[in-house]
Design a protein around this nucleic acid. Structure first.
Lengths: 230, 230
DNA sequence: ACCACTAAATGAATGACGTTCATTTAGAAT
DNA sequence: ATTCTAAATGAACGTCATTCATTTAGTGGT
């Protein structure tokens, strides 16, 4: 309110805001944890389209500009969300024995988590691990499992990156429309492809994205597993 | 030829086919081909950040609103660009003999094309093939190669999807910063991962993204190749 | 108790950007 | 000559992320 310069009052704010009042250096209304979980909740409710800085601020009962005291950009919030989500990825099987099964469990849960958050993939894929501590912790658990399974040191990171790349691509695939391979009017000019699509549709009762993911993952497991020391 | 995405106008009935309608002005300053190549040029010069509808219109000496007579949204333009780029992907090796080498050539060129256009990946990954004729043509060539190589029909599409998912993820990887795996201050708490990263850096002279891509692709080739009929 | 310091919140302003719309323009068809 | 219509125009609009001057209220030092 421009004219309020001389009006010290406004004792209750616009609409009896909860007792949370403004600014002090110590205990804050806002912090990165609060922002992260509010963001996650908002995304769950409104999707990534409804996820705006203004909407996020509203769920926190705060002005949009207040967010910028705790994050430097919207991308920053996405990074926080991404790192938080990574803690839902299951790496427990790497502590136990079987490498193949551990990778399977990890890969499926990783894909399942991020198939609901594909807008984060461009962020994750190029994010320095130092900016995402939980993600780094995941890499540590996975690396340890690969090491224990007899992988040569210099192949561990490339193998993980390869599997991860497959996972990211596959996460998109989960969100594809069911009729994505419908050739429509051009079916006649693409006989091999059209036949293959048709055949798949006849055979499969499982979701196509799952069939492709299983096929690729098992192929990767077989191919990469051969690198392990006997 | 490239009757791409959505028809611009079609103010009459649903099935109003390419039927001749009454008078139309001849001086078509703009069309989808022109828009596509201008877009590609603009993206090459200014990147995807500089790629705005206003900038695109400017390179075409046209008002931004004029674009909407030929495309229905910015996403539409991206679809046109994506389909055009797909024609740069090399599928020629599928006509010749060796399946493994054909997939190798295809996959590397596919990755190389789209690693410079990662903002298109979320678009490609969920785009119905009917909206992208050149992409459909690529699938036909690849499917034919898989079929000729002895793949069982119902595995062809899942295998292609799996490889493609790997390619999309790997395309992002190409654009990752060189220090993406630098654990920074947390190196001490992630010994296995840090050691693996270090070891890779010592060994490798090739670009890390290329090492990972080759490793994953060869694993996929080995694993998927086993599906072929003997 | 006072005071200076400063983190945190506010609300208004800014500048992009995608997109819409009423209107105009100019070939083509009758 | 008149009519029809796709295509172009320029001025909006609404939505965002982000910035900035200003205000507020704990904290630590004296």
């Amino acid at each position: 309110m421009t004219a309020a310069t001389s009006a010290p009052a406004d004792p209750h704010g616009p609409a009896a805001r909860p007792r949370r009042r403004a600014g002090r250096p110590a205990a804050a209304v806002l912090d990165q944890n609060g922002i992260t979980s509010a963001a996650l909740q908002l995304i769950g409710k409104s999707g990534y389209d409804g996820f705006t800085m203004a909407a996020l601020a509203r769920t926190l009962n705060v002005a949009p500009s207040a967010l910028y005291n705790h994050v430097s950009s919207k991308r920053d919030v996405l990074v926080l969300v991404q790192d938080h989500l990574t803690s839902f990825v299951d790496v427990t099987a790497f502590e136990a024995g079987d490498w193949e099964q551990a990778v399977r469990d990890w890969a499926w849960s990783y894909r399942d988590v991020f198939s609901k958050h594909t807008p984060l993939i461009p962020v994750i894929a190029v994010l320095p691990v130092a900016d995402a501590p939980k993600t780094l912790a995941m890499y540590e658990a996975v690396s340890a499992g690969f090491s224990r399974a007899g992988f040569p040191q210099e192949r561990i990171v490339p193998a993980i990156v390869a599997i991860e790349s497959f996972i990211f691509g596959s996460a998109y695939d989960v969100t594809a429309p069911a009729d994505i391979f419908d050739s429509g009017t051009m079916a006649a000019s693409t006989p091999h492809f059209t036949a293959a699509v048709q055949r798949l549709a006849e055979e499969g009762h499982e979701k196509p994205a799952d069939v492709a993911f299983r096929l690729g993952l098992e192929a990767l497991l077989a191919g990469l597993g051969a690198l392990r020391a006997a």
